[in-house]
Design a protein around this nucleic acid. Structure first.
Lengths: 218, 218
DNA sequence: AATTATTTTTAAGTATACTTAAATATTTTA
DNA sequence: TAAAATATTTAAGTATACTTAAAAATAATT
């Protein structure tokens, strides 16, 4: 299966996971940076391959086969991120960019070798879960977003759910890193902002960021 | 530049290095598993991109730009081989197959990180030289092929110049490995065969193999 | 509910990287 | 050196993954 197909299936999977947005060709097209027409075309093509169910004007739904494919690609992506992060001094955004390409050129055998080498990790450096070779995911449902966190409470960062370069640059500059701890010093409820204490810094984050930083009680 | 272009340029480079065969579209086509017509097409296309010089019915010659591109891809291939070989228990042929795909999806930055991690190695696990970031190669001109080796002399294996699966399976089964030592016990000059002592085994190799196994005096 | 706006789909067209078949040139060999 | 064999090139055609523009359907707004 081609890179275009793998990316399409992955985009649908992620859209169904993270967003409330409906999974129609237009939304997928926007994520992939292609035209709506191209997305409709691809949807039909993948329906013929039994990777998804397609009916005109309806939402796209991955079949079990399509879901397996998406999880396999995501597994490889996150294993690469974990490996590159461990071995090399590279930013979260850089390892994401490399993994985005490497994920499509990695045999199941190599993925397994990487997983083994890392001790079969369940999470990547963003805190995103790594599916196992069967496509099974360990979910961590104790995590909450910073926007829901309690004032005065100390938390451990469990997930940075983004692939925006600027966000990761901000993270790198402010010790916002998977498994670091922070304390919520103030919730500005009306302004939807959150003030945190991390290391020796006090930072005020707006909702754009507090909704994608997930934490666990410590 | 596309994978097809990188592979084309790489095939020309290798053809000019290793073989006496003339570098015409047909030979390149054979190596890449495409039709002669496709190779002629590509040659014209790459000439327009100034990656090679093309004149009807003449040999294909890489320009400096084309050579740089080939060396950059080869560098990434061999760095991946060195990394995978060091980290994982995989056969020489398997790491070759993975590297063949990964080489096209590796940024210069990542290549440099891999090189750094490995201590900027000059040779990969086949003994093939790894070009540096500028495309410079350290050549080792003291090596000779086993077919030219002296009876009674002990050598160190310096290069296994092949990408044939069966050859590498044979190597794996017989301790024929980069930097292992062997002794030439007999040269069967008329039959073009060579008998070697490696570990506790005695093996007779025909010319197909003795021409691609390179050794250094010890 | 009707109009407007937005999305989706269809249709026609493009670039890349191939293919096969036929024409042309080169190379081999007798 | 002329004929035969081989290689290269040209021409026409295909699949993939897109594009833009227009038509059709759905969703939003008044």
């Amino acid at each position: 299966m081609s890179v275009a197909i793998e990316n399409f299936v992955k985009a649908i999977y992620k859209n169904n996971m993270h967003d409330i947005k409906d999974t129609k060709p237009g939304n997928i097209a926007k994520k992939l940076g292609i035209s709506n027409a191209a997305a409709t075309d691809m949807a039909k093509k993948l329906a013929a391959k039994e990777l998804l169910n397609y009916e005109k004007y309806q939402e796209l739904q991955l079949t079990e086969k399509g879901t397996k494919m998406a999880l396999n690609v995501i597994r490889k992506h996150r294993l690469w991120e974990a490996l590159l992060f461990k071995m090399f001094d590279m930013s979260l955004h850089d390892i994401h960019r490399e993994a985005e390409l490497l994920e499509h050129q990695t045999s199941d055998l190599l993925a397994e070798k990487i997983s083994e080498y890392l001790g079969h990790p369940k999470f990547d450096p963003h805190g995103d879960p790594i599916p196992n070779a069967l496509g099974e995911i360990t979910t961590k449902n104790t995590s909450i977003s910073l926007s829901e966190a309690k004032e005065g409470q100390t938390y451990m960062i469990s997930r940075l759910m983004s692939d925006d370069k600027e966000f990761f640059e901000f993270c790198a500059q402010n010790q916002i890193k998977y498994r670091n701890t922070l304390t919520v010093s103030k919730q500005f409820v009306n302004n939807k902002m959150t003030q945190i204490l991390i290391g020796s810094n006090t930072i005020v984050l707006n909702e754009d960021f507090t909704k994608i930083i997930y934490v666990d009680e410590n």
